[in-house]
Nucleic acid binder design. Structure first.
Lengths: 191, 191
DNA sequence: ACCTGAACACCGTTCAAGT
DNA sequence: ACCTGAACACCGTTCAAGT
């Protein structure tokens, strides 16, 4: 005699993300998720393979959101302006969803890592914009420099690592402005 | 009747760090540490308060090592050269001890975070060097920009996030060279 | 077809009992 | 003074039994 479903994959992922966002990935336990959706822990295994896969699904959900946020601020006409707006957009996402940001860009376990293709789609416009600024010869190096700075800044900001006072917003503006100028400079003379 | 000690705090921390370095913090269990030092898990609580404190002690051990590495490459006479050598030194540490690097700069739990004072001592010479380059007005912003880039680059390199091919070493050289130039530039005109 | 309780192998941690 | 086995409250996961 068939039993009607009492929950759904969507509801499970939503509940999981909300647990992660509230207290971090270590707070996501199968029984807490089960409680939130109104079943017992073993029933979750009808919809997800296990805890690791559930955390990966939460990560993919965040990647989708980030893709949308990035695409919505890109004009394609003014690369320097686009770069600043994209940096702001990623920063906004990181501040709204700090745990999800960490899951996307620095997952504690490889098992939670988002699919390379979907992450590539999310960051594609960022790479194209740095290429427009730096030119084809240094495109990859420039993109890596900007992305490393942005990721490092946000990780440190979220972790509360800027402890020497001062204005963190000002440091962010300084950074994006100087980096934009730095990757636009002509190649330096040899040393 | 007193029982002679069968292990020591030092031995416990060494065993813990080696477990962490091999398989990450989640692989550090009290019973594995106990096995490695030849006692049962409950005996560890004679020397450490618990697993979280043990992970913090591992982190502090790594901070001590990093402090030594950074101090040993600083000359104080040529800031641009010092900055490059320090960046290389931190990168060398991160590659030799990737898990320890993450523990120091991006611990998954606040409970493992190193003491702010000891971390400040480790990074002090880095801050002084960026100040020598950028001047007093933009010292803090410049330091944050360089440290964010360095931390972001190493985190991404360790996580295997540079997946578009190319020469990662070259991107590192490009980054440190451009950033050094960028924080040395005169203040830009207003926009 | 879906859900459940019971069970298993693990955790971290506490504590009375042993030497 | 230090170490231990037993116990407790948790995990993730499996599976036979229920509807």
């Amino acid at each position: 005699m068939p039993t009607p479903p009492r929950t759904s994959l969507d509801e499970i992922v939503r509940a999981a993300r909300s647990l992660v966002e509230a207290d971090g990935p270590e707070a996501l336990t199968m029984s807490r998720v089960a409680d939130a959706v109104g079943v017992r822990a073993p029933s979750l295994y009808k919809r997800v393979q296990g805890r690791d896969e559930l955390l990966r699904l939460v990560t993919e959900d965040a990647v989708r959101e980030l893709t949308h946020v990035l695409d919505s601020v890109t004009s394609g006409t003014d690369p320097a302006r686009d770069l600043e707006r994209m940096a702001d957009a990623v920063r906004g996402f990181a501040r709204r969803s700090p745990r999800a940001y960490v899951l996307v860009f620095a997952p504690a376990s490889d098992a939670w890592r988002p699919d390379a293709a979907s992450l590539g789609r999310a960051t594609g416009s960022l790479l194209r914009t740095t290429e427009a600024l730096a030119g084809p010869d240094a495109a990859l190096e420039a993109a890596r420099t900007v992305v490393a700075w942005l990721h490092g800044f946000l990780t440190m900001e979220l972790a509360g690592a800027f402890r020497l006072g001062g204005d963190v917003d000002r440091a962010f503006r300084y950074g994006i402005e100087r980096l934009t100028a730095a990757i636009m400079r002509e190649a330096p003379q040899q040393d």
